[in-house]
Design a binder for these strands. Sequence first.
DNA 1: GCGCTTTCGCTACGGGTCGTAGCGTAATGG
DNA 2: CCATTACGCTACGACCCGTAGCGAAAGCGC
Lengths: 204, 204
Amino acid sequence: MQSSTRGRSAGRPRSAAADTAILAATRAALVELGWSKLTLGDVAARAGVAKTTLYRRWPGKNELVVDAVAELFDELRLPDRGSLAADVEGVVSQFAAILARPEARSGLMAVVAESTRDEALRERIRSSIVERQKRLVVEGKSRARARGELPPQTDPAEEGRTADLVFDVVAGAVVHRTLVSAEPADDTWIRGFTRLLLGGLREA
Amino acid sequence: MQSSTRGRSAGRPRSAAADTAILAATRAALVELGWSKLTLGDVAARAGVAKTTLYRRWPGKNELVVDAVAELFDELRLPDRGSLAADVEGVVSQFAAILARPEARSGLMAVVAESTRDEALRERIRSSIVERQKRLVVEGKSRARARGELPPQTDPAEEGRTADLVFDVVAGAVVHRTLVSAEPADDTWIRGFTRLLLGGLREA
DNA sequence: GCGCTTTCGCTACGGGTCGTAGCGTAATGG
DNA sequence: CCATTACGCTACGACCCGTAGCGAAAGCGC
């Protein structure tokens, strides 16, 4: 008999504080234990909530970690530094700083790996993490085009393809440098990468 | 084969057939179950060996999957196609084909994620997977230099840095395209990527 | 052949995590 | 005051882990 209107009115409301506590506890557990040794029971204990509360809000470990890591990317911005090269260096630097944090290193690749067999999880990652990054690429390109640093683009389909391409190159390079090669994406590296991205291999 | 003389001689030798059976079973399990649901008991059953045999040869799931996936990269070659662009397209195409296989998709990122907290595992990945790929980059660059497509490089330290950089860009882009963006690195994409890599953003 | 050594298959076990069910209590809105 | 929903807590079967112990098998040196 739900008096309808919206299902969201009757009963005790969910504690918003619990949400933030759980996500913070998840990140703390990622730092201390890493992905594989992280257990939901441990996260619940750290957050001061019951394990059942956790399961009422997230389907499982994968989705929880995606949400916990996604918050790390909230700080990503694209400040206008005056030139395309400076803009690229700026955003890559921010991205590298996030990936240098242990909670991101441990969690991000693990959920991406899981997402290869879980369509819903992949969509969750895409909407809460990837899409936000990709928007920076689109904005940066249009800004450079307004400055005259890049030729105007007529075909919108072609424009979308190159934006995707550039995004995969930038994000992929930083991730690979940080997690696979396991060496820091410091200023020297970032300058070299920006030069390669803008001028190509023949000028590097 | 393998005529004696070296340290190991006494006792029953380890079955080489068991090794190949176990690694093949591991890949099959990766395809069917993915990383998270893969259990060593299941792999042992598929391979027709006892679980204890498996633990005698590999420390755990991580190392086993690294070795199983590493074999997929044995086929990686750098055929001489006459130009730098064609060489790049060729090797990227091979790399993309490997990453398109489900056993690579499921396993590779998972072990990389684990390696962020396990130095020995990272070294195992580096020596058995990454180093082999990186050599292709070095060889391709020197070949292009011999053709006159790239300027000669004087400083060997600088040369090493750019080789590392190019490697991270190439491998990272393909991995990101395949696993994060979850779209195929087909011929169209490969051509666009090669053009971006060689000519830079201003020519793309 | 004969032992010595190492590996193999098998069984069994304690320890840990999972995800859920059940229950009584707490916090809202009508 | 009552209906409704969230919460904390406990308990549970199921599963996987990694190891120990056993007898049997398979090479090697003699």
